[in-house]
Amino acid sequence: MKFIVEAFDKENESLDFEVVLPNDCEAQLAKIMNWSSPQRGDEGYNLSSTQLSSIEALAGKCFCDDKHLFQLTCNVS
């Protein structure tokens, strides 16, 4: 499974950038997202500020700002 954080501009809703998460992060994401079942590969989730902070730590980089809306997508690799 491939997990990507997508950043959409709040004004025009265009996709400005993506952050690809590490390949081995599914267990950590399950805890952050409070998932009770495995992901299918076609899901998308709006992220709260708390979830974003945890995902930034998981990614090892800061990308959160007030100009974007952030979503996590789950894609079959």
Rank of each mutant, 00 (worst) to 15 (best):
S14M: 09
S49D: 10
H68L: 10
L15Y: 01
R40E: 14
E43T: 04
C62Q: 14
G44Y: 00
L69D: 08
S36E: 15
E26S: 09
K31E: 11
V76E: 13
D42S: 08
I4C: 09
V20R: 12
E43R: 06
L69A: 15
L58N: 01
L21I: 11
K2A: 08
G41W: 00
N23G: 07
L72V: 05
V20E: 07
L69N: 09
S54T: 01
F3V: 14
E11T: 07
A59F: 07
L21C: 10
E56Y: 03
D42Y: 13
S37N: 02
K2M: 10
Q28E: 11
K67T: 12
E56I: 10
L52M: 07
K61E: 15
P38K: 09
M1F: 13
D16L: 13
A59G: 15
E26G: 01
D65Y: 07
S48A: 05
G44V: 05
F8K: 01
R40P: 04
F3M: 15
L15V: 06
N46F: 11
Y45C: 07
M33C: 13
I4N: 03
K61W: 13
T50C: 07
L72A: 02
S77D: 15
D9Y: 01
C74L: 06
D66N: 14
P38T: 11
D24Q: 14
G44I: 10
S54E: 11
N12C: 02
E6Y: 07
E13H: 12
G41V: 08
A7E: 04
K61Q: 13
P22D: 06
L15D: 04
P22H: 08
L72P: 03
G44H: 01
V5K: 04
C62F: 09
M33L: 15
G41D: 05
D9P: 00
E43D: 09
L52V: 07
R40D: 14
T73M: 08
A30L: 08
Q39G: 06
L47Y: 00
D16W: 05
Q28F: 04
W35T: 02
K31M: 06
C74T: 08
K61D: 05
G60P: 02
K2I: 12
S36K: 15
A59Y: 06
P22Y: 04
S36D: 09
F70M: 05
L58E: 05
Q71N: 07
